[in-house]
Design a protein around this nucleic acid. Sequence first.
DNA 1: GAGGTGACTGCGA
DNA 2: CTCGCAGCCACCT
Length: 111
Amino acid sequence: MDRKIFYDEVYQVVRLIPRGRVTSYGAIAAYLGTKSSSRMVGYAMNAAHTIFPTVPAHRVVNRNGLLTGKHHFGTSDEMMKLLNDEEIHVLDDQVQSFKTIFWDPAAELDI
DNA sequence: GAGGTGACTGCGA
DNA sequence: CTCGCAGCCACCT
């Protein structure tokens, strides 16, 4: 059905995340109207590295700002490294000032 | 075809 | 405060 579109939507939203900002799987799911299926967002990210262009999946964390999917980047350091490169400070897999740099697509894109 | 798994979340105890 | 459980749905075995 529209499964592929859902994936594509997820990738598009993730690519729209401004540098130095992060969002959550649930926020993306809610933005796409499938807030109950936040797991699918994470699953879509699982295939993010197989598509082109690259999706900045490191800007997507769980609702607590925890890097739950860091291991899917190949190495756990990779995600932290990418985040640090964007001046996003991570301590013990926890994004610092997560609440401040949080980027809500539903609000920013105003849909 | 059926069962198990998971990069999540919200709510109840 | 922490811990457990149910709902969600695509993918893999």
